[in-house]
């Protein structure tokens, strides 16, 4: 044991190799490697009868994706849903996080954070099926809203958006809460002492400091929503999102090359989103 540690001490490269081999293998082979295989297969096609791969270079998958307006419609719909989910989550998370970080007495704070995270410990499917029951015609929403004369949304895009917003809410609350905790109370008091109204303090002090946190949360909610195909299958009624196009071409049609080509859309969209976020400077001091 001792000789080994001596050897390690003397060999800087050996040390580095031991430390990095496993994570690098994981990153390069399992992660980037499978991404690369997927991108390559996007240029192949499949024998529609036997379902076997035809490994010949073709751009048919991409031309179909770009020329058929259905895919454009579905892509736009998916982006709108992902953005809506993000907006809803920001609107819900800001007051909750503010309450947690600045209003709640410190001794309750950790407990409250545990409560926020708790839903993440239960199965995603259980939560989604619970929403399916709630949105059904004989569900609790229909029952509760009936006296008010309101019919709740049935299975569809709205139900999908609300369910997704519920599922990803903790991912938005936590970064905002962490961001708010970093703002010392004295800063807010100083702003007040200098005559700023609550609104002005919020706009000029809290928001700029919080901005990177909101962006970090939005990366979660946006990309998770964009990649989801299960919620829309369960509460989406007859609608579909872009991830369903990918899923259907794998599970239903067995057309892996087309699915791979379609999968490039969410990758490019999320990369574009990250690029936009970086340009806005939100990640500089995060």
């Amino acid at each position: 044991m001792k000789t080994f540690s001596v050897w390690l001490y003397q060999h800087r490269r050996g040390r580095l190799a031991l430390l990095l081999t496993a994570p690098m293998l994981w990153l390069v082979v399992a992660y980037l490697g499978s991404l690369a295989t997927m991108l390559v297969s996007a240029f192949w096609s499949v024998d529609t009868f036997t379902g076997k791969l035809v490994k010949q270079l073709t751009f048919n998958n991409f031309s179909l994706l770009f020329t058929n307006h259905v895919y454009r419609d579905i892509a736009l719909r998916s982006i709108v849903v992902a953005l809506l989910v993000t907006v809803i989550d920001v609107l819900l998370a800001l007051p909750i996080a503010l309450f947690l970080a600045k209003v709640l007495p410190i001794r309750f704070r950790n407990f409250a954070v545990v409560l926020i995270v708790l839903p993440l410990w239960s199965s995603y499917l259980v939560k989604t099926y619970a929403w399916r029951t709630m949105f059904s015609n004989s569900g609790v929403l229909a029952w509760a809203l009936k006296p008010l004369g309101i019919t709740p949304p049935s299975y569809g895009l709205l139900a999908t958006t609300l369910t997704l917003a519920y599922l990803w809410l903790p991912y938005m609350i936590l970064p905002i809460y962490a961001g708010l905790e970093r703002i010392p109370d004295s800063l807010l008091e100083a702003s007040g002492d200098l005559g700023a109204s609550a609104g002005k303090t919020y706009r000029n002090i809290v928001m700029p400091i919080l901005y990177p946190a909101v962006i970090a949360g939005s990366i979660f909610t946006f990309s998770l929503s964009l990649g989801d195909y299960i919620v829309v299958k369960i509460v989406g009624g007859k609608t579909q999102l872009f991830a369903n196009v990918i899923y259907d071409n794998i599970g239903t049609a067995g057309n892996l090359p087309f699915a791979a080509a379609a999968a490039i859309f969410p990758i490019v969209t999320v990369l574009g989103y990250l690029f936009f976020v970086r340009r806005s400077g939100a990640l500089e001091n995060f």
Binding site: L64, N68, V70, T239, Q240, V245, N249, T252, A253, N255
Partner: peptide
């Protein structure tokens, strides 16, 4: 299959 995606 592609028509089915278009129908939905």
């Amino acid at each position: 299959t592609q028509a089915w995606t278009a129908i939905k």
